[in-house]
Simulated assay, not measured.
Amino acid sequence: MTTLENDHLRVSIRPKGAELTSILHKASGIEHLWQAAPDVWGWHAPNLFPVVGGCLNNQLLIDGKTYPIERHGFARQSIFETTESSATHAVFSLHSSDATRVHFPYEFDFQIIYELTDSTLTITYRVVNEDEKMVYFSVGAHPAFAVPFLPGEAYEDYFIEFDQKEPLETHMLSAAGFFNGETKPVPTVGNRLPLTKHLFDQDALVFKELASRRVAIRSDRHEHSVTVDYPAFPYLGIWAKPGASFVCIEPWLGCADSEGPQKPIEEKEDIQHVEPGQVFTASFTVTVA
């Protein structure tokens, strides 16, 4: 386990999946990350690579061949190497290997960088193309924030606040987890999305056309908040296991497949790519107050 700490926050990251397991606000003593109850949802903040969401037939189609791939990819199940570590900075690396080539036939180095600055944690994804051809991929975050923050509060005391006042429209998922082409308006109060235990009864809320590039988890009962800034990520998922005491704020570069015929990886929706010898980088931040 790697621990980063300054005067404001203490965060922990485990080698499996380079996954955050704790974001502790030192002044208040509030643990802001869901503590992965296995009988509810056994993750804290999985990193999604080389796919986000599910693929049709649990396969990727690359250069005319199919490769088995699990939902959200293999990074969250993989052991990362810690290549740099200091009091406030750590770099985790997952290199291509015989194990990854079974699912994703590219040479790459997938790096996740964590950096503490005051009350903000910056998470950076770097994909280094070590191949002789274009590497196509998706990448995303899935952190689960504990709600409510304090004892004696209710989940319904909280809301998601968007930095823009805009209509929200979620893209609907089938029972199998694929987009079905349907959309549905999501009721808001101004720029607030109230949290309820039934908000996610029909799976995640998936927003593809947001103007907002910042959301915050807040309550009217106090000033504590968690804010996620995701300027480089065009898609945002918001999800919780129905009835559970957390909410996931998920910036994505890529998404699940849509129902219909399988497409080659380079034609997948919002697919990312990096040229041979080049590096792809995208960051988001979590700020605790």
Rank of each mutant, 00 (worst) to 15 (best):
M1I: 05
M1H: 03
L4V: 04
D7T: 13
G17K: 09
G29P: 11
G29R: 11
P38M: 03
P38V: 05
G42D: 12
P46Y: 07
L48C: 05
F49W: 06
V52M: 10
V52E: 03
C55Q: 15
G64K: 02
K65M: 14
T66Y: 00
P68W: 09
H72S: 02
G73K: 07
A75Y: 07
S78Q: 06
F80P: 10
T83A: 07
S85G: 12
T88I: 04
H89P: 04
A90T: 14
F92V: 02
H95R: 10
D98W: 00
R101S: 15
H103Q: 14
Y106R: 13
Y106C: 11
E107L: 13
E107M: 11
E107Y: 13
F110A: 07
Q111E: 10
I113M: 14
E115R: 15
D118K: 11
L121G: 01
R126G: 08
V128A: 05
E132D: 14
G140H: 01
H142Q: 05
A144S: 14
A144M: 09
P148W: 04
L150Q: 12
E153K: 01
E153G: 02
A154L: 15
Y155W: 13
D157H: 07
I160T: 00
Q164G: 01
E169A: 09
T170I: 10
H171N: 13
M172L: 15
L173T: 08
L173M: 12
A176K: 12
G177E: 05
F179T: 03
T183Y: 06
P185C: 11
P185A: 12
R192F: 01
P194K: 01
V206N: 12
L210C: 03
L210I: 02
A211T: 12
S212D: 10
I217E: 00
I217D: 00
R218Y: 06
H222C: 01
E223L: 07
E223G: 10
A232N: 12
F233L: 00
P234S: 13
I238W: 07
K241D: 09
K241M: 15
E250K: 03
W252Q: 04
A256K: 04
Q262C: 00
E266G: 07
E266L: 06
K268V: 01
D270K: 12
V274L: 09
Q278L: 12
V279L: 11
F280D: 05
A282D: 00
A282F: 02
T285N: 04
V286R: 00
V288S: 00
A289D: 14
